[in-house]
Nucleic acid binder design. Structure first.
Lengths: 244, 244
DNA sequence: AAGATGGCAATCGTCTGACAAGTCCCGCAG
DNA sequence: CTGCGGGACTTGTCAGACGATTGCCATCTT
């Protein structure tokens, strides 16, 4: 059964098109965008649709809008590729740093979840999870230690080791027909120790950033949780906050 | 000259009202919101305005909208108070952790900026900055070491030590008539050492989270930059990412 | 009885046209 | 040269309509 490609919302398409144009430099930071009416005409949509797209770009800080004046591209637009919101998988994260991603190590098992995962995934006492542990390399150097927990009951299709080497959201779409609509990540600064220090090939005491994530589907049910230990000298992520 | 209170956009007011109702539990996670037409009627605005508000709530992950079905409050809504986007100042940050904020130490000076600040603020070689360093306490315990750099030329009003004890954005609005429209924060995991370890009263090697921030006004000019060292066991921040 | 099918109402997405509110610029009077 | 309008332009809001999708329910088929 081939997955039916949901037609994407028009406003989403316009939003992506504008973001792409900004990314490519068609509109430079500081520059004023064409007025909404012109944008609407050039994309062949209504002004309401353009406004929905611009609202999203404004919320993410890519543009600012001033009533009576116009819509302007901000400096923050130059960080479009290294923004946290784009960080839906480790490989893109590594590419955003300008490095080549690869998998350094991978193991998986089916088991009863620990208390933490059971609570995060809201599982019953007998339900099992698929645990996938892997290390991502950036230009050959280990930078992320990742542990994904997926409720076993969700997985409907048989899978191979290869299916697990991508990111967990792609795996869920393929083998569980579940789509992650949003996730909640908790950020905890920590230091390397034990097996994680060993697998990341860094000394105990190296500063790490831990992401403790839970992903939900559109029905608001937890479909996976992950522990991501990030090791990296220098900037790890950028966060842009706007207050229109 | 009293600052003229800009009338806030209607959609922004509706957005804030809805967020408040959700925060207070009038609409629980999982619950369906009234249809857009009803919301519009009950707030006395047009449906377009309600839709603009809902679009923002959706983007921040507080609600999801399903065409043909309705708008639903998500689990992520329960994290509304501990979300990173609300983190425009250290005191709120501490309050979000359930602690009482206070200032433990404060010093300031006017000086030539170091290369880092000069570059971030795009200053000429002779321009000076006001540097404010302080330590925030949560229930009496030091948790944040903060260093703000403000271009001296921006400050038009005389100020006292008290003006500096609030957050930098309030200070800028009062004494420089500048409003921060957005900021870019870079997250760096690090460990305590030297004077920062001493002022945060923690041993060298304690994991810290460093925020390297630059704030911009609506004209996209850098108006301040800050270095924030956060010390805290357990969860520091939550990030919600949605993919509608 | 159980499942498949079709229609219907509810809801969000998009369109159209208009007006209000705010900003910017330029000419004009002083 | 300076200050003051006024008009053109742009974003914000309004109103009403229709299209697209979903969920429900009655009906039909097996």
């Amino acid at each position: 059964m081939a997955t039916i490609e949901r037609r994407e919302l028009l406003s989403k398409q316009v939003e992506e098109a504008l973001r792409e144009q900004i990314r490519e430099g068609c509109f430079a930071p500081g520059e004023q965008l064409p007025p909404e009416n012109e944008l609407a005409a050039s994309y062949g949509v209504s002004r309401a649709t353009v406004r929905a797209a611009l609202a999203n770009l404004q919320r993410e800080g890519t543009v600012v809008r001033r009533q009576g004046s116009g819509t302007y591209v901000t400096h923050a637009a130059s960080y479009l590729d290294s923004r946290m919101e784009e960080m839906w998988n480790c490989e893109d994260m590594i590419r955003a740093l300008g490095c080549q991603p690869s998998i350094g190590w991978l193991e998986y098992e089916e088991s009863l979840p620990d208390a933490r995962a059971r609570q995060k995934l809201r599982l019953g006492p007998t339900e099992t999870v698929l645990v996938v542990r892997k290390v991502f390399l950036a230009d050959g150097e280990p930078v992320i230690h990742c542990a994904d927990y997926i409720p076993r009951a969700l997985i409907k299709e048989p899978f191979t080791r290869d299916d697990l080497s991508g990111n967990v959201f792609d795996f869920l779409e393929e083998c569980a027909d579940e789509r992650a609509t949003y996730y909640v990540a908790e950020l905890v600064p920590t230091v390397a120790e034990g097996s994680i220090a060993r697998r990341l090939e860094c000394g105990a005491g190296t500063p790490l950033l831990l992401f403790d994530e839970v992903a939900y589907n559109i029905e608001d049910r937890a479909i996976s949780c992950s522990l991501l230990h990030h090791r990296r000298e220098g900037v790890l992520f950028r966060v842009v906050q706007s207050r229109p």
